[in-house]
Structure formats: structure tokens, C-alpha cells
Design a protein around this nucleic acid. Structure first.
Length: 270
DNA sequence: CGGGTCAAGGTGGGCA
DNA sequence: TGCCCACCTTGACCCG
């Protein structure tokens, strides 16, 4: 029980993505990875108290993996079990692992409990997919991020893996995709936040300047008008009176108000 | 040796 | 009710 297990108990960083983002959310029924950044972001940081881990009642006696519950038992051949073969240089161990992995002979029977070369009973050994296996899985994932049972069987047969392993790979792959997308979204939101902060600072400064001008006894007549009726052109910085219908206006007013959009270029000069 | 990666275990939820 | 999914966690392995 380490730091992770403590921290994960309740701190939830939630990236809420509205409208178009939701359409491509991996959690929805379309199960499509999201590459769309055209969304209304909401960022929520919450402390959840009802997040129970590992103490939940079991819904399935042996869910999925139950059938091949010993699926985690893999033979690593000469490098398995942390035995004597680990005493050699790590480089040679790695090379040996690669050679062995290319032989695709590491997965043992789903129901057997075997011993390695050192006579140590296998616990949960780490399966490493070969490059060829990974490539084929990636290729399949590009086509569709989820598999129907037939596709799963086919892929498993092709890869000489158990269907459960293919299924797990796709689950983990989807999770990785989602995590990556979340990171991208997070970066984007940070930039949004920075831009809005800058704009907020600018507007505050502008407001202070306007207040200062209003306090001045030598202010021009148009500055005595209600603030709501005045608009400053962002380009030429001239003041306009939206209520005036005379031809003596400082400049022609646009009927539409100026709203700042941090993600688009400034409006063209008036 | 600490942190990262990844396959797999475990659980709750949605759906047909 | 069973299946499949997302999500969280675990443990093996790798790397600097």
C-alpha cells in the first residue's frame, strides 16, 4: 500500500467537455478516440468520498479473467523467476528476452501451474508482446478501437494469444488513448486559462484608466455619458456613443458589441 | 533504487 | 443474467 493507493482514494480531476467533445468521448457509446479540440471546457477538481477501492463486493465470482485466471502465468524461460539468470548483465538479459520473445513461446497453458528453470513456482509473470504482435494489435486498433467476439477470436488465433489477452490489450490501449487525450485537453485548458487571465488583467487595467478619466474635472463632454453607452474602438481607440443619432459621432459604430475571443484574431480595424 | 510502463486482476455499471 | 466495458490497482519488468 503505497502513496498511489492513498492519493487515489478521493482526488478526482475531472475534465468536463461539452457539446462536440462529448460526441467523441471514449466513454460514450461511439467509443471513438477524441481528437477534437473544438469544445467548451469545464475543469472540476473534486474530493470524492464514495470512491471505494478493492473493498467492493464482488459481482462476478471470476469475471472474465476467471476462466483463465492463471492467464498471468507466463514462462520467461531462461530469464524467469528472478533466478540465477538475472545475475548476468542486464543488457544480455534484455537481448535474451528479445530473442525469446520473438519465438513467441512464453505463454503457458491457462490452467497449469508451472515451475521455471530454477524450480521456482511461477507467480504472476510479465508477458511482453513481441514487436510483431504489438504491430498487428496496433493495426487492428486503428481500424476499430473495440472488437466483437469474432474479431477477437480471429486476432487471438493470428497472434497465438488467448482471446482474453487480446481483450485486455484493447482495454489497456483504450485507456492509454484516453489518458493521452486528457493530457492534450489539459494543456489546451491551461493555455485557455492563461489567455483569459491576461485578458482579465488588461480589462481591469482599462477599467482603472477609465475610472481615473471619469474623475478628472477636465474630462470631455462625451465622457460624462453613462458608461454603458460608450464603446471604445479597439483599433483606433476612439470613443463612440451608441445612443447618439447625430452625425457628430466620433466614429461609426458597429451595431454588434465587441466581445473578446481569446482564441481568434482581433477584429479588423473599424 | 525509484519511477515509468504495461499486462493482467478486480470491481461496478450499462445493456441486450 | 451474462457479457463487455471503463476504471482502478497490482505486480513484473525496464531504465536512468
Amino acid at each position: 500500500m503505497g502513496f498511489d493507493s492513498v492519493c487515489n482514494k478521493g482526488l478526482v480531476l475531472e475534465l468536463g467537455l461539452n457539446s462536440s467533445m462529448v460526441e467523441n468521448n471514449p466513454t460514450n457509446t461511439t467509443k471513438k478516440p477524441c481528437n477534437n479540440l473544438n469544445f467548451d471546457p469545464t475543469l472540476t477538481l473534486t474530493l470524492s468520498s464514495d470512491h471505494d477501492h478493492g473493498v467492493n463486493k464482488r459481482k462476478h465470482a471470476c469475471v472474465g479473467a476467471g476462466g483463465d485466471h492463471h492467464g498471468g502465468l507466463y514462462r520467461q524461460d531462461s530469464v524467469s523467476g528472478g533466478g540465477s539468470s538475472f545475475s548476468v548483465a542486464s543488457v544480455s538479459v534484455k537481448r535474451e528476452r528479445e530473442v525469446k520473445s520473438e519465438e513467441s513461446e512464453r505463454v503457458i497453458s491457462a490452467t497449469s501451474v508451472e515451475e521455471d528453470d530454477d524450480g521456482i513456482i511461477n507467480g504472476r509473470k510479465k508477458l511482453r508482446l513481441t514487436k510483431a504482435q504489438s504491430a498487428l494489435l496496433e493495426q487492428a486498433f486503428k481500424h476499430h478501437s473495440t472488437l466483437n467476439p469474432k474479431q477477437k477470436q480471429e486476432l487471438a488465433r493470428e497472434l497465438k494469444l488467448r482471446p482474453r489477452q487480446v481483450e485486455v490489450w484493447f482495454q489497456n490501449r483504450r485507456a492509454r488513448t484516453k489518458l493521452k487525450q486528457t493530457e492534450v485537453d489539459c494543456e489546451y485548458l491551461k493555455k485557455c486559462c492563461e489567455t483569459l487571465k491576461e485578458e482579465n488583467t488588461r480589462l481591469h487595467k482599462e477599467l482603472q484608466e477609465l475610472k481615473a478619466l471619469k474623475m478628472s474635472p477636465t474630462k470631455p463632454l462625451y465622457m460624462q455619458l453613462p458608461a454603458a453607452t460608450l464603446t471604445m474602438c479597439p483599433s483606433c481607440e476612439r470613443i463612440g456613443d451608441t445612443t447618439s443619432t447625430t452625425k457628430t459621432r466620433p466614429f461609426t459604430m458597429d451595431t454588434k458589441p465587441h466581445f473578446f475571443n481569446p482564441f481568434t484574431n482581433p477584429s479588423p480595424a473599424c
